[in-house]
Design a protein around this nucleic acid. Structure first.
Lengths: 261, 261
DNA sequence: CTGTCGATTCCCGCTCAATGGTAATCCTCC
DNA sequence: GGAGGATTACCATTGAGCGGGAATCGACAG
């Protein structure tokens, strides 16, 4: 689907280029960009020029390239993400004010948890979540909550694949995970002590949309030693219900249990 | 620069397609997308398919297309915007808690003000700012603050072009505007009663970066009848200094006045 | 059930924009 | 001044993109 020898479309290369930037590498020279993406030198320069013209990329004084303002603008303008984020933010602030550690909002995307908002000073405990960052589903409280309320078919396909064991407490056995998911559905929240990082634990609750399906997971990360972690659950649940309602959710209808399996 | 009859590159068409979505039209059929962009039918379908493959666009159950999660993720991951936003958010919350009306953070982009964050319930007064929305520089308090602290050369080129008069109080005369900008620099804030919307006024103050240049404008929108509007200025200024400091600003150095003109 | 209209997919020959190698030029920094 | 990297210029080749047209699907009305 492309003129290129490697058989990629321009769109594919565009994604490659933009993907080369992350929080570790927010800006780089065109040559380095070419190296990181593996694209031929000339091609990189030509493509980058096109992107600069449209302001999807921008050149800073030093000559380095970084992602352009236009890119963010276009991505945000018509995005459903903004609605979710805006609905959630006030409630997240309340949670943040009470719980004092970092509060995150994550969604399920491409079999991973994508964090779309995060509150909390960086001086808090170890927390590897970042806005626009991804983490595995089965090793985060947010991910497990999202998975627990996903359609059965999706759960099956997810559990069918091999899962990485990050720490001792990471569940990777399908059967054990299924039991855990059922428990999460029943209790209404997920609590995971040190699943990726041993020192911290996460607590997450689901946020629902008008059609009663999960939209996101609201979660807090607290130090693991804190034993009364579950004392945080009610606050989270109340906030999550508030967000759900702001999204148009009208409460659980009798008899309309979310399909679990 | 393209295979197309109209002489557009694929990148250009990509931008056209993504630009077709906004908060009024967050999702649409491919056919409608083709109509809105003016692209040939077949071309639209082919391009949309490419974009769906990369998940830059997504197809919802009904068949309609909307901007994909991936798009937001890519735009955010390497963006400098996130840093600014994250630095500003806590201070904005404080302002918001005290002032009670909507609080916005805007930057100068392509000769317009681009709002990158906005706090405030929608039930407040008339406020046409939206996240990822644009407004003209000379008709917003944020824009005037940004312009007032921009390099002289930019100011000159900006003032050289014809400016739209939105309401009675909109300044469009270069000389008058220059005087106003000087005043803004001297007072440290801009206050604009009903420049675009007659019922509300905006107050804005500058946010500086480490190199002592303007990065953004922090502003609040309040009802116009409120005469003690300027009582809000100190709060805004304190917050703006906090944000500036979080960005690495170290206070105004003696003798290093920002180039005004 | 049939007809209409719109959205979507399939088909296909043409063609020029995109490609990517090579080489020249422009920078820094030592 | 020259070594090494980044950037731009040049250019022959070619297949990806193009877009008109027709077929198919789907919803709705009569």
């Amino acid at each position: 689907m492309a003129n290129s020898a490697s058989g990629e479309s321009i769109i594919g290369r565009f994604v490659k280029i933009v993907s080369a930037f992350d929080d570790r590498h927010p800006a780089m020279s065109v040559a380095e960009l070419g190296r990181r993406t593996g694209l031929p030198v000339t091609t990189t320069y030509r493509l980058v020029n096109d992107l600069l013209l449209e302001r999807l990329l921008e050149r800073e004084p030093g000559g380095d390239i970084h992602i352009g303002t236009r890119m963010w603008e276009l991505a945000s303008r018509g995005s459903k993400m903004l609605g979710l984020r805006e609905a959630a933010l006030p409630f997240m602030e309340d949670v943040q004010a009470v719980v004092q550690h970092s509060t995150t909002l994550g969604i399920l995307d491409s079999d991973e948890v994508l964090y779309i908002e995060r509150l909390g000073s960086d001086r808090t405990i170890v927390d590897i979540t970042k806005i626009a960052g991804r983490l595995p589903v089965h090793a985060t409280s947010s991910g497990l909550v999202l998975l627990a309320h996903s359609p059965a078919a999706y759960q099956d396909s997810f559990l069918a694949r091999p899962l990485t064991k990050f720490t001792e407490t990471t569940l990777t056995e399908p059967a054990a995970l299924r039991r855990h998911l059922a428990e999460i559905r029943q209790r209404g929240f997920a609590a995971m002590p040190g699943v990726i990082v041993p020192e911290s634990s996460g607590i997450a609750v689901p946020v629902f949309g008008p059609d009663n399906t999960v939209r996101a997971a609201l979660s807090v990360v607290v130090p693991r030693n804190e034993e009364n972690a579950s004392a945080r659950v009610p606050v989270l649940m109340a906030a999550a219900r508030g967000i759900s309602r702001a999204l148009g959710w009208r409460g659980e209808l009798k008899g309309t249990l979310r399909q679990s399996h």
